[in-house]
């Protein structure tokens, strides 16, 4: 199961840059990123290659950050994956694409989704 970082940021120039700078300084690579915004703030959601190091760096920088369980599947499995999830009554809260032809999916019932996908033979990363 993959860990996603959800970071609360003010919606103004330079804020995203400060977070990416922080990752650079700590040699953390961003594998996927999506931004949702509402008015003066937004949420930056990202998958990072060194979760523990990233969690520490973000905490030290006094960031409002949550760790969230997400599913990562191959783009080629998208059709069958959303079909299986839909049939099992699992809702997709949001999704965004990732490097390497993959897609990040946040569902409302992570364990159930994981089980459903594995039963359907769909690989998760």
């Amino acid at each position: 199961m993959a860990k996603q970082f959800s970071i609360f940021l003010e919606n103004k120039p330079g804020r995203l840059s400060s977070v990416i700078d922080l990752f650079e300084r700590n040699q953390i690579r961003v594998l996927a990123m999506g931004i949702a915004e509402a008015g003066n703030y937004g949420i930056v959601r990202c998958i990072l290659d060194a979760p523990e190091k990233a969690a520490e760096a973000l905490r030290n920088a006094n960031t409002a950050v949550n760790l969230v369980e997400v599913l990562i599947i191959g783009m080629g499995d998208l059709h069958s994956a959303v079909k299986v999830l839909g049939e099992r009554g699992i809702n997709i809260d949001y999704a965004y694409t990732m490097d390497m032809g993959r897609i990040v999916i946040k569902v409302d019932d992570e364990p159930k989704a994981k089980k459903a996908l594995s039963e359907a033979g769909i690989k998760t990363y």
Binding site: S6, I7, F8, A36, E37, A38, Y41, G42, I43, R45, R59, N62, T63, A64, V65, N66, V68, D93, K106
Partner: peptide, 12 residues
């Protein structure tokens, strides 16, 4: 605060 629930935009 640092433990602010920061994943769901609708909740915020």
């Amino acid at each position: 605060s640092e433990d602010f629930k920061s994943d769901r935009l609708t909740e915020i």
